[in-house]
Structure formats: structure tokens, C-alpha cells
């Protein structure tokens, strides 16, 4: 009887041990992990929402096994270095950064705490990482690919608003804005368009520059990606609506808010994708071991209400290609 009992019990014990090991491997850490987030906030709120959603799907419960320390710079870039240092002083397990300038500030503040960046336009040309395969440092994350896509966006703007020749570009003092503008400028030359460049560093600059340009000074607005202008995209949407001109954005939530058209990644999806990278880091993977990722999907979105308001009729092929149509 006894040997028989053992023969039955041993595989059961083994199976239970394997199940336990598998559960422990898959589950988030038992202790409460500290995740710090440095975000420009405002328009980027959806990234954080997606990030929280993603963590929840991975089994993290806020204030149970994960505590989030969110530092929202509310669209300003002046104190970002100090805010990054404050977050580093809190010694988080991972520091999540949204946008290029916030990532640069975090990189300067620490070389030991893992940094997972998201919504960074071009991490290679911004000098954050040497290549997409490995950062070789404490950085990893998601590139929004907005730099290389800048030319394509301008081409799509030309497709939806063929008469647009003078295009207003508000360029923030951020590396990604400079990279994107240069790409757009090359494309504009080929498409026969003129880019009207205005440099901005704070919100007031955006207000001032938009106010300084009279109605009819431009035929369209092209949103050059940057943390500053993205955070205050509503100012551009408002001006485009007033002037009845096309506004090309780079995220579909901006289209839902009133921009005419956008082509690029989605904030919420990017946040979710970021949470998966953070999960890997929290499970002990070194950031240098995790290659830089790009968005799962690029979304073309068109706001037909705005199109009607400004008197544009998107072509059939453009509508066929659109992933999201706001009516």
C-alpha cells in the first residue's frame, strides 16, 4: 500500500511544484514595486492611462503590489531636470519617461535605475541609444517613430488638402522636433510646399506665435512632434478651426479632439506596450537586454466633421486606408 501511495503522491507533488514555479514565474513580484513616471501630462494623459491599463492586465494592482509615483510637468519643460532628480531620489525600481526631453532629463539624472521611455520620436538620432537592438545602458523603451514618419505625414497632408502650399510649423526646442522638421522640410521641397517655421519653448510662445500670424498667412498647420506642442495641441486645433485650415497631427486622439487628420501610433496602445517592457524589467531583465521597440500599429485617422467644416472632401482611397474615422 505504501509504495503505491508514494508512486501516486510523487508525481502529484512534482506537478504541484511545477505549477507553483510556473505561477511564480508568470506572476508579478510579490513585494510592492515602485514605478516612477515622468510625463508632460495634458495631451499625454492617454499614455499614462494605457500604461495603467497594461499594468492591470499583467496582474499589477496599484497600491497593492505596485506604487506609481507620477511627476506631471503639465506641459512645461523648465523644471524637468529637477523633477527627474526628485524621482531618482525616491529610488524607484523603474523610471518611466514620456517624450524625448523628459527621457533626456532622466538619463542625465541616473545611470543605474532602469529607464523605460515611451513616445520618443527617434531615440537613435536624439542620441539616447546607439541603435535599436540594444542601448548598452540603463535605457530601453518604445520609439514612436515620428521622426521618420514626418515626411509621410506631410505627403498625406498634401493628399487631403492639395491646395495647401504654405504650412505652419511650430518647432519646440527639442531634438525630436528638430529631426522631424528637417525630414518634413526635405519632403516639402519635393512636394512644392513652403514650411513656415516658428520656434517655441514654452506655452506662451505658442500662444504668441499663433496670435502673431494673421488669418490667411498659412494654408495648413503641420504638427511637428514634440512634448511641448503635443501637450498643448488644443491651441493648434482651435486656430485651425478658426482659420478653416487643415491640421495634420501625429496621434489619433488629437483627431478625436478636432484635428483634421493624423498618422502615427496611438497613445493608449503605446502606454500598454510600455507596460509590457516595464514588466520585463521588474522581473529582472536588464534594460540593455531589451531592444527598443516601435509601435505595434500605425493608425491613419480622419475627422470628417472637421473636413466638412473647412470644406475638404477626403478622397475615396484615403478613406479606405483610414483606420479611424471620426464622424
Amino acid at each position: 500500500m505504501r509504495p503505491h501511495l508514494w508512486r501516486t503522491a510523487l508525481p502529484c507533488v512534482g506537478a504541484l511544484a511545477m505549477l507553483l514555479a510556473a505561477t511564480l514565474h508568470a506572476a508579478p513580484p510579490a513585494r510592492t514595486v515602485k514605478v516612477a513616471v515622468l510625463t508632460p501630462g495634458l495631451g499625454f494623459g492617454e499614455v499614462l492611462a494605457g500604461f495603467r491599463e497594461g499594468l492591470g492586465q499583467l496582474g499589477y494592482r496599484e497600491n497593492v503590489n505596485v506604487s506609481l509615483l507620477v511627476e506631471d510637468t503639465k506641459g512645461t519643460g523648465s523644471d524637468v531636470k529637477a523633477q527627474a532628480q526628485a524621482l531618482v531620489a525616491a529610488k524607484p525600481d523603474v523610471l518611466v519617461t514620456v517624450g524625448t526631453s523628459h527621457t533626456v532629463a532622466a538619463k542625465t539624472a541616473t545611470s543605474t535605475i532602469p529607464i523605460v521611455f515611451t513616445w520618443v520620436g527617434d531615440p537613435v538620432r536624439s542620441g539616447l541609444v546607439p541603435n535599436y537592438a540594444s542601448s548598452g545602458s540603463n535605457l530601453t523603451g518604445l520609439s514612436v517613430y515620428s521622426g521618420p514618419l514626418s515626411g509621410k505625414r506631410l505627403e498625406i497632408l498634401k493628399e487631403i488638402a492639395p491646395d495647401a502650399r504654405r504650412v505652419l510649423c511650430l518647432v519646440a526646442k527639442e531634438s525630436i522636433a528638430e529631426i522631424s522638421f528637417n525630414v518634413a522640410q526635405r519632403t516639402a521641397d519635393q512636394l512644392g510646399m513652403t514650411l513656415i517655421r516658428r520656434d517655441v519653448t514654452i506655452r506662451d510662445d505658442i500662444v504668441r506665435e499663433l496670435g502673431a500670424l494673421p488669418k490667411g498667412a498659412f494654408d495648413a498647420i503641420y504638427h511637428v512632434p514634440s512634448g511641448l506642442v503635443s501637450a498643448h495641441i488644443n491651441l493648434l486645433i482651435q486656430r485651425a478651426r478658426e482659420d478653416k485650415v487643415a491640421l495634420m497631427a501625429h496621434e489619433d486622439e488629437m483627431v478625436a479632439s478636432g484635428a483634421l487628420i493624423s498618422y502615427g501610433a496611438n497613445y493608449r496602445r503605446m502606454g500598454q506596450q510600455t507596460s509590457r517592457i516595464v514588466d520585463r524589467v521588474l522581473k529582472g531583465m536588464a534594460p540593455a537586454e531589451i531592444p527598443i521597440q516601435v509601435p505595434d500599429k500605425l493608425v491613419l485617422a480622419i475627422n470628417l466633421v472637421t473636413a466638412r467644416t473647412i470644406g475638404l472632401k477626403p478622397s475615396l482611397t484615403l478613406l479606405e486606408r483610414a483606420e479611424r474615422i471620426v464622424e
Partner: peptide, 9 residues
């Protein structure tokens, strides 16, 4: 035609 790039000369 490319999904990501403008096909320049």
C-alpha cells in the same frame, strides 16, 4: 508607394 516613407528621387 511606402507605408512609412515618401518615395523621393
Amino acid at each position: 508607394l511606402s507605408r512609412r516613407e515618401v518615395m523621393t528621387s
